[in-house]
Write a protein that binds this DNA or RNA. Structure first.
Length: 354
DNA sequence: CACGCGTGGTC
DNA sequence: TGACCAAGCGT
């Protein structure tokens, strides 16, 4: 199952040589500051390099050191993450950074067991930080590496499974060289990003083509095997645009679930069998909002990973602005809306409404 | 283990 | 153009 010592040596040599000639010049590769590496790894989770770069630059400018981030407010951190998605990453990172300052003297832990306790650091991120920042021989098996290994060794296991990642980690441990664990882990990922891509792998330019089982068998397009994900479930949703004298009502979403803790417009599902106006009116009644002049202001669709919101935006005028506000609701001046951290679905809505 | 969790790019 | 994807983690 594990590669032979000869194969392992070929992979090490060819991959490191290829990486040193072809590595991209990315902002988080300027030095080995563990904080810089850490931030990049969190931002890069399920997110493309090109998307991350501007966020990374701005974030580092705003919070240049781990201490700066630890001293920031939640609102500042989430605002800096606005539009990047998977917002629990920002909250977990902030919480973990504060813990590093409080409990580890501001030094990012270099022991696997210690760093793994930090929020938002799982098996992959642990290996990435330890190998890249501290040159520890720890596997960093992400989607790239699983794709590369699937093809190199013709592994047909479903890469969505936890057990498959563990198998890959055992292979990685057998391959990582003593001399340059960080470069080797990055070389594997870089190969997956630039050559051993999902759709049309560039096998003719691959530095490890000679030992690739999938290439030899012509299986590179069949691997890796992965279970299909379900399509997002459609949901009819209403955004309430509740206005009064240049101000609008916003709602802080629940701390768990979709867009947890983010600001948004008051949001609720349309009740089947009711008209839009009925559902809107019942919602306002339930919340105690004295609203009138209901009016459909527009529609939009937004697809999350597991939900497909079909949104109708309904405006109503609030006649008595001093009514008791529901929990987690606030009045905001329209020109101040941009100061809040809204996820993209609400930014799309606001663009239409303002 | 299976699922929830965002967004934008790609073909 | 809609499915698939991109440096995963928490529960």
């Amino acid at each position: 199952m594990l590669p032979s010592p000869e194969t392992a040596e070929v992979i090490r040599r060819e991959l490191l040589d290829w990486y040193r000639k072809n590595r991209r010049d990315l902002p988080w590769r300027k030095n080995k500051d563990p904080y810089r590496i850490w931030l990049s790894e969190i931002m890069l989770q399920q997110t493309r390099v090109d998307t991350v770069i501007p966020y990374y630059e701005r974030f580092m400018e705003q919070f240049p050191t781990l201490e700066d981030l630890a001293n920031a407010t939640d609102d500042q951190v989430v605002k800096a993450w606005e539009g990047l998605g998977y917002y629990s990453r920002a909250r977990n990172l902030h919480s973990a950074v504060k813990e590093v300052v409080a409990n580890y003297g501001g030094r990012v832990p270099s022991e696997p067991e210690t760093i793994a306790k930090l929020k938002g650091i799982g098996p992959y991120t642990k290996g990435a930080i330890l190998s890249i920042a501290y040159d520890k021989k720890v596997p960093a098996v992400d989607g790239n590496v699983m794709r590369v290994f699937s093809r190199l060794f013709a592994i047909t296991d479903d890469i969505a499974k936890q057990s498959t990642r563990k198998k890959m980690e055992r292979i990685a441990e057998a391959l990582i060289p003593d001399s340059a664990p960080g470069d080797f882990n990055q070389a594997l990922m870089e190969l997956g990003a630039l050559i051993c891509t999902p759709g049309s792998p560039q096998c003719l330019f691959c530095p490890v083509q000679s030992v690739c089982h999938a290439y030899r068998e012509g299986l590179e397009h069949e691997l890796p095997r992965k279970k299909k994900q379900k399509p997002p479930e459609p949901v009819d949703v209403i955004f309430a645009w509740l206005i009064c004298a240049g101000r609008v009502l916003v709602e802080k979403r629940p701390e768990t679930g979709l867009l947890a803790g983010m600001w948004g417009l008051p949001t609720f599902e349309q009740v089947p069998g009711e008209t839009l106006e009925q559902t809107m009116e019942n919602f306002c009644d339930k919340k105690g909002v004295p609203a009138s002049n209901y009016q459909v202001k527009g529609r939009l669709e937004h697809i999350f990973s597991h939900r497909h919101w079909k949104v109708v935006m309904i405006q109503a005028e609030v006649s008595e602005p001093d009514f008791p506000l529901p929990e987690n609701w606030e009045w905001v001046k329209k020109e101040d809306l941009r100061l809040r951290a809204f996820p993209n679905v609400y930014r799309k809505a606001l663009k239409q409404l303002i």
